[in-house]
């Protein structure tokens, strides 16, 4: 079986016009424009198997969305090859477009002034979905997302969460084999985020469709994706199992203790790097190899009520990866 998505040496550079601040800068830019090249995506390669659910993570402006746009045919790559389901997305062939879908958290395809059901019916025609298949898929999605009651309400009167659900229905009616989700949970409250995640997980399990998800929320990625691709400043810096990130980048673990009596903070420095101490709780960052020694030391020489050894939270690892620690 050939992979659903193959990306090799993808580059997308943008020419950006730089303007000095203020009116003077605007006038100056009338006569002389300075352009700067930004490397939104800089030589990225990866491939994704059919049915995989992969998370793209990276800070704002890292190049996640640009990559998705190249994969869905919105952007013309500066160089490199992209193949999705065996086609070049940029060709915009109808047979290809009928098999993919892109959901953007900040852009809607629903007709703002009309009820969502109108967009669904329009999509039925656009994707040339047979009537019976349309009915079946619609009922299934409406049930899964619990949107039965809001289909006939004008879209602009819906809440953001309701709208996103309807966006998903619209995007999935034609049963895409490849689904790109760009920040699908952005702006949603915690309950709606959770529901959205549950749905995506369930959908991937049931339909075996290939899904790429970008998100700022680590919870999305932690819950949904086994494999993650981390992009920063246009470069791919990690591609692998979520669990490997911690092993690869966190060279220490966290020991947290609850003391039963006050201790001298100065003495604690000997155990390891003190991350925080306010009686009765203290946390230490300790090198992987030295964890058991440090824990034994604590237990033997200090009044301990409770002690825990934990991995560094994935959020922290990724933050460290992004904030300059050279990881290459």
């Amino acid at each position: 079986m050939s992979p659903a998505i193959v990306v090799s040496n993808l580059k997308k550079y943008f020419k950006v016009h730089k303007k000095e601040p203020g009116l003077a800068g605007s006038v100056k830019s009338l006569f002389k424009r300075e352009y700067e090249e930004t490397r939104a995506v800089d030589n990225i390669s990866f491939w994704i198997e059919e049915g995989e659910l992969v998370g793209f993570i990276g800070p704002n402006g890292a190049g996640k969305t640009t990559t998705l746009k190249c994969l869905s045919g919105l952007l013309y790559p500066s160089s490199g090859q992209v193949s999705v389901l065996g086609s070049n997305p940029y060709g915009r062939k109808n047979e290809f477009l009928k098999q993919i879908s892109l959901v953007m958290g900040q852009k809607n395809q629903l007709w703002w002034e009309l009820p969502a059901i109108e967009t669904f019916i329009l999509n039925k025609e656009i994707y040339e979905i047979p009537e019976s298949e349309y009915e079946e898929t619609l009922n299934e999605l409406v049930e899964l997302l619990e949107v039965k009651d809001i289909l006939k309400i004008q879209v602009r009167k819906l809440s953001l969460g309701q709208r996103m659900k309807c966006e998903l229905v619209a995007a999935l009616l034609h049963k895409p084999k490849v689904l790109f989700l760009d920040e699908p949970t952005i702006g949603l409250d915690i309950v709606s985020q959770k529901k959205m995640r549950d749905f995506i997980k369930e959908y991937n399990r049931l339909k075996k469709s290939t899904i790429i998800l970008t998100s700022h929320y680590m919870d999305d990625v932690k819950e949904l994706c086994q494999r993650v691709i981390i992009i920063d400043k246009g470069k791919l810096i990690f591609d692998g199992q979520l669990s490997e990130i911690t092993e690869k980048y966190a060279d220490h673990k966290i020991i947290s203790v609850i003391f039963s009596k006050d201790v001298d903070p100065k003495k604690l420095e000997q155990i390891g790097e003190v991350r925080s101490y306010s009686f009765p709780k203290a946390t230490f960052a300790v090198k992987r190899g030295a964890v058991s020694v440090a824990a034994a030391e604590l237990l033997q020489h200090y009044p301990i009520a409770d002690l825990n050894i934990e991995e560094v939270p994935i959020e922290d690892v990724i933050r460290e990866v992004f904030t300059g620690k050279d990881v290459a």
């Binding site: 045919g73 915009r92 892109l102 852009k107 809607n108 395809q109 999509n123 656009i126 994707y127």
Partner: peptide, 12 residues
């Protein structure tokens, strides 16, 4: 403003 995306992504 990128509104074109919604059309480009569909067989239209």
């Amino acid at each position: 403003d990128g509104g074109l995306n919604i059309i480009l992504i569909r067989p239209l």
